[in-house]
Amino acid sequence: MAYSEKLLDHYENPRNVGSFDKNESTVGTGLVGAPACGDVMKLQIRVSAEGIIEDAKFKTFGCGSAIASSSLITEWVKGKTIAEAGAIKNSQIAEELALPPVKIHCSILAEDAIKAAISDYNTKNGKAAAEAAE
């Protein structure tokens, strides 16, 4: 099966690998897993006082598509408001990386991870999850 160049690039040179201190109030952490493959993905965002995502990091143990999906989404969310980041759809990731149908779930994992990170940030900062969805 042929993978796209973008996918291979993100897999071979993943962007933004690492961690923030999950206890910091400006940091939101999302931890999600795809049980069918035993994958686990951690995605973290650092949010400014203005509600802009200044930085994002991830750590993914899983297949190449899961690594590429999380690498791509960390690039995409930087500079976005949390509302904009929360509106990213897995289909956009799948399209950008040209994921084959059997790997679509990897992009779902990345979408769920960013949503979980935003929700964690909102919970920590006393904001309703609904506010981020607006």
Binding site: L31, V32, G33, A34, P35, A36, I104, H105, I108, L109, D112, A116
Partner: peptide
């Protein structure tokens, strides 16, 4: 758990 496209957040 873990059907097609399902994720867990336990």
């Amino acid at each position: 758990e873990g059907g097609e496209g399902q994720t867990v957040n336990d």
